[in-house]
Amino acid sequence: MKTIADVMSRDVTSVSPDESIRRAAELMEDLDVGALPVTEGQRLVGMITDRDITIRATAAGLGPEETQVAEIMTDDVCHCYEDQSTDDVMQDMRDIQIRRVPVVSRDDHQLIGIVALADLVECETDDSKTAQTLLEISAPLPAGQASTPL
């Protein structure tokens, strides 16, 4: 059985909650990613996505320099541990329809990596399970039900 440690990326860039959303957007552009973990020191405290910046800040008329990441980030973040099975994490991703999950240490919630759907697809030998995961993550939610952000 493969674990998250076998497939996760340990080279992860994060942003601080007190940084501007402009800085977060610049990092996303530089790294060509749509989401960043938010950390205080190395402790995971949230996630911010390009969608958060667009919907929660830009659409609300908040300025990119004066708005801090903490104001629009998601602080209730699904995360996993490096010793979890890839099957368990794929199920979690299906259940809450997310494509990437921060990996934290069990003892102190320190960010140690990130695992994306693409990482799991590369390691998966059962194509039907991978296809089912992608379908469930991408499926529209029932009317009135909001997706859980990263």
Rank of each mutant, 00 (worst) to 15 (best):
T148S: 11
L44Q: 03
E29Q: 12
R99Q: 04
C123R: 11
G34L: 08
E122Q: 11
L44D: 01
T49H: 05
Q132D: 15
V7R: 00
A143H: 10
G144K: 07
R100D: 10
V103F: 01
D6A: 14
K2Y: 13
V7D: 03
I114Y: 10
V12Q: 07
A118V: 09
R51C: 13
E122R: 12
E65H: 10
P142H: 12
V101S: 03
R23P: 02
T39N: 01
Q110C: 06
D108W: 02
S16Q: 15
M47F: 11
Q42G: 06
T58N: 07
A60W: 00
P142D: 09
I55C: 06
R23K: 10
L62C: 04
S105G: 12
P149C: 00
D30H: 05
D108T: 01
T74Q: 12
V103E: 04
Q110V: 02
T133P: 15
E26I: 05
I53K: 03
L62H: 12
D76C: 06
T148H: 14
P37T: 05
V121S: 04
C78D: 10
P37V: 08
K129C: 02
Q132Y: 13
I4F: 01
T39Y: 02
P149H: 02
E40L: 06
D83C: 04
R100Y: 12
D127P: 07
P140V: 07
A118S: 15
A57G: 09
M1W: 11
H79D: 14
A5I: 04
H109A: 12
A35Y: 09
G113M: 11
R22A: 04
R99C: 03
D95N: 15
A118I: 11
T3M: 07
T39R: 01
R99V: 00
E82M: 14
I48Q: 08
T54C: 10
A25K: 10
A146Q: 14
T130D: 05
Y81G: 04
V33E: 10
I55R: 15
R23M: 01
P140Y: 05
T86V: 14
G144A: 08
S138W: 01
K2H: 11
A146E: 13
T54A: 12
L62T: 09
M1Y: 12
R43C: 04
R23F: 03
L150F: 06
I96W: 05
V45I: 15
V101R: 08
I21S: 11
K129A: 09
D52N: 14
T133I: 13
L111P: 13
R100G: 05
R10S: 14
I55Y: 12
A143P: 05
V45L: 09
M93D: 11
A131M: 12
V121H: 08
A70Y: 10
E124W: 09
T148P: 08
S138I: 01
C80Y: 00
K129G: 00
A5K: 11
Q91R: 14
E29P: 02
A5F: 07
P149Q: 01
L44C: 09
C78R: 14
G41D: 12
M28D: 05
E124C: 15
D52E: 05
Q84P: 02
A5N: 05
G113S: 08
V115L: 02
P37Y: 06
M47S: 06
E136C: 04
T86D: 03
I53D: 04
L134M: 15
D30S: 13
D75A: 03
P140R: 12
G61T: 09
D107V: 07
T54L: 12
L141H: 08
H109S: 12
D11R: 15
V38E: 00
T49F: 10
Q68M: 10
